[in-house]
C-alpha cells in the first residue's frame, strides 16, 4: 500500500478517476439544477436564450439550397448547452455526464462479475484438476475461440430483441444488465486462464504439498494457502478489466447493440455523434476523449497495482 501511495503516476490516475466518477454521479444535479434540461427527452423544436437572444436548438440551414438541419454548436456557457446539442436537440454535456455513469457502471460491474466467475472457475480447475479442469478448460477454449465481437454481437442481437427469460431469471429487453452479462462472460477466459496457471504452479510448491499431506481440508487449503497467493493477481487484473470492459461496451454500443435508447453511454453518444461528424464533430469526439482518459487512468492505476502487489504478474496491457 505504501508503495502504491508513493507511485505518483498511479495517485494522479486515481485522482482523475475519482474526479470523473464524482462528475458523473453529479449528472442529475447538473441537469436539473444548473442546466434545467432533461437530457433524455428530445427537444427538436425547442429554443434557448443565448446572450439575450432566442435561438433554435436545431437550426435549418440557410445557405445554398437550404437542405438539412444542424443542431446548435457549443455555447461555452456552462449552464446552457455547454457542448452544444445532438440531433435530438439534447444537451450533449449533460448526456456526457449521464453516459459516463452507464459506461462506468457497466465497466465496473461486468469486471466484478467477470473476475469473480473467472477466479472461481480458474482456481477450481487448477486446484482440483481432472474432470473439473477438463470441463472448465474446454469452456474457456470455446469462449476464447468464439471471435469476441461475434460472440458479443450474437448474444446481443438475441437478448436485445427478446430480453432474457430463462427459468426464474427475467431480464427485460433494454436493461443495462444485458450488456453487463455479455461483456462479463466474453472475457472470463482472459482472466480465468492465467489464474488457473498460477494455481497449477502453486500446487507444485512445497507448502501446498505439505498442507495436502497434513490432511487439511480442500476448503482450508483454498482459503488459507491458495487465495492469499492469487489475490494480488486478481487485484491487478481488476482495474484493467474495468478499462477493457468500458472499451468493449463502447464498441458494442457503437455497433448499436450495447446500451439501448433512451439510456446513454459514452459509446451510444459516439454513435449519435457519427451522424453529426461533418457538422458538429465535437458530439462524437468528446465521449471518445472521455473514454481514453478514463481507460488510460485505469491502466496507469493497474500498473501501479502491479508494481505494488505482484510485480511478476504477466498481463497483456489492456489484453
Amino acid at each position: 500500500m505504501r508503495q502504491l501511495r508513493r507511485n505518483r503516476a498511479a495517485m494522479l490516475a486515481l485522482g482523475v478517476i475519482v474526479l470523473i466518477v464524482t462528475a458523473c454521479l453529479l449528472a442529475p444535479f447538473y441537469a436539473h439544477v444548473i442546466a434545467h434540461e432533461n437530457p433524455f427527452a428530445s427537444n427538436i423544436t425547442g429554443t434557448i436564450r443565448l446572450n439575450g437572444k432566442t435561438v433554435n436548438v436545431l437550426q435549418a440551414n440557410t445557405q445554398g439550397l437550404g437542405y438539412g438541419v444542424t443542431p446548435i454548436g457549443p455555447t461555452w456557457h456552462f449552464s446552457n448547452y455547454f457542448l452544444g446539442a445532438d440531433d435530438q436537440g439534447r444537451d450533449v454535456f449533460a448526456r456526457l455526464l449521464y453516459g459516463g455513469r452507464s459506461s462506468l457502471y457497466i465497466g465496473a460491474s461486468s469486471a466484478v462479475i467477470c473476475v469473480a466467475v473467472a477466479a472461481i472457475a480458474g482456481v477450481a480447475a487448477g486446484y482440483f484438476g481432472g474432470a473439473v479442469d477438463w470441463i472448465v478448460s474446454r469452456i474457456f477454449d470455446i469462449i476464447w475461440a468464439f471471435p469476441v465481437y461475434l460472440l458479443a454481437i450474437s448474444l446481443s442481437v438475441i437478448l436485445e430483441t427478446n430480453g432474457i427469460n430463462f427459468l426464474f431469471i427475467h431480464i427485460e429487453q433494454g436493461s443495462l444488465t444485458i450488456p453487463i452479462l455479455i461483456i462479463a462472460s466474453v472475457f472470463i477466459p482472459y482472466v480465468g486462464r492465467p489464474l488457473r496457471g498460477i494455481v497449477l504452479s502453486l500446487k507444485e510448491r512445497e507448502f501446498i504439498q505439505a498442507a495436502i499431506g497434513s490432511g487439511a481440508s480442500d476448503f482450508h487449503i483454498l482459503r488459507k494457502e491458495i487465495l492469499p497467493n492469487v489475490a494480488p493477481t486478481i487485484i491487478v487484473f481488476f482495474p484493467l478489466m474495468v478499462a477493457f470492459n468500458m472499451l468493449t461496451e463502447s464498441a458494442l454500443s457503437f455497433l448499436g447493440i450495447g446500451v439501448q435508447a433512451p439510456q446513454a453511454s459514452w459509446g451510444t453518444i459516439i454513435n449519435d455523434g457519427l451522424g453529426l461528424l461533418y457538422t458538429r464533430p465535437l458530439v462524437g469526439i468528446m465521449p471518445g476523449l472521455m473514454i481514453v482518459l478514463t481507460a488510460g487512468a485505469l491502466n496507469v492505476l493497474g500498473d501501479g497495482f502491479r508494481d505494488a502487489f505482484d510485480p511478476k504478474a504477466k498481463l497483456r496491457g489492456s489484453i
Binding site: 472499451l247 462524437g284 488510460g296
Partner: peptide, 16 residues
C-alpha cells in the same frame, strides 16, 4: 503513449 494507445477505442480512432 503506450497507455494512450491501448485506451483508445479503435473504431473511434478510425472515425476521427
Amino acid at each position: 503513449l503506450g497507455i494512450a494507445a491501448v485506451s483508445v477505442p479503435a473504431y473511434w480512432l478510425g472515425e476521427v
